[in-house]
């Protein structure tokens, strides 16, 4: 479904990706994991064509993103759904209108049919009864479920989830896990989850790529990743405070620092 070859991308002088290659299989849940600030969200934006790579190619469903015209890109996006970390619901519209938004923009369906489709999508995420609420009246978990309903409104071929579990309580987390898994299997989607929530993501992912320092440092099934001999992967998967990624920010000797006088920094 998605093939990335030799991808390089930098913001100013800061290199975010340096020769990243990966493949995302159709119909599977693929997780892209890594610590904060490694460019996981940037990778999703590159896949969606919101950013342009400095080097390399990204092919989604046979279409090279960097060579696509604006119209081709917009056509492709109609077949892609994306769940933003914040939900990105339109705050001046109700839950119902948010889910109806892509249908009204891209189809000429009569309002009665749009109603049926919206209610079906909201039923799938368990929020049919909340259709009259405004985004400000929703909890974080509910907002993400509404965003999910909106993302599947046009029956896309794939959905990209940007940190779907961040800041969720255990019940919301369980609901989201269940929804991602069930939507993927019942709608025959391809799901890409960007996350650093190891336990939750490993529980539903078919394949995991681990990203750090601009490169893919390991990939495989969740079991293979857990058994990786790499000390870095072990620290990331177990959440150990110290290891190859140090707990302490580099500093001079602690005792010397305490006993020294003068400069504050």
């Amino acid at each position: 479904m998605v093939s990335i070859r030799d991808l390089s991308f930098a913001r100013g002088s800061h290199k975010i990706f340096d020769g990243v290659s990966l493949d995302i299989e159709r119909g599977k849940i693929t997780a892209i994991m890594g610590p904060s600030g490694t460019g996981k969200t940037t990778l999703l934006k590159l896949m969606g064509g919101q950013l342009c790579p400095d080097q390399g190619e990204i092919v989604v469903d046979g279409q090279n993103i960097s060579l696509s015209s604006r119209d081709q890109l917009y056509d492709l996006r109609k077949r892609m759904g994306m769940l933003f970390q914040s939900g990105a619901l339109l705050t001046d519209m109700s839950v119902y209108d948010n889910v109806a938004f892509p249908l009204r923009e891209h189809t000429h369906l009569p309002e009665s049919m749009i109603r049926t489709l919206v209610l079906m999508k909201l039923e799938a995420v368990g929020l049919r009864g909340a259709r009259g609420l405004m985004p400000s009246e929703l909890s974080g978990g509910m907002a993400r479920r509404v965003a999910m309903a909106r993302a599947i409104a046009l029956d896309p071929m794939m959905i990209m989830y940007d940190e779907p579990f961040t800041g969720q309580d255990p019940i919301s987390m369980g609901v989201l896990l269940h929804l991602i898994k069930s939507l993927n299997s019942t709608l025959g989607l391809t799901s890409i989850i960007v996350s650093h929530d190891v336990v939750e993501t490993s529980a539903i992912a078919d394949y995991i790529y681990v990203l750090a320092n601009g490169k893919i440092i390991d990939h495989g099934t969740p079991i293979a990743i857990k058994q990786s001999p790499s000390a870095w992967i072990h620290q990331f998967m177990t959440g150990a405070a110290d290891g190859p990624v140090h707990f302490h920010y580099p500093a001079k000797n602690y005792i010397d620092d305490l006993l020294s006088t003068g400069k504050r920094y």
Binding site: Q50, L90, T91
Partner: peptide
């Protein structure tokens, strides 16, 4: 604020041009 809350990015990903809309 629409930009800060990713509403404009969200529209782009729904293939809706935020400038026109």
């Amino acid at each position: 604020l629409m930009k800060a809350t990713e509403q404009l990015s969200g529209m782009e990903m729904m293939a809706v041009d935020p400038i026109k809309r």
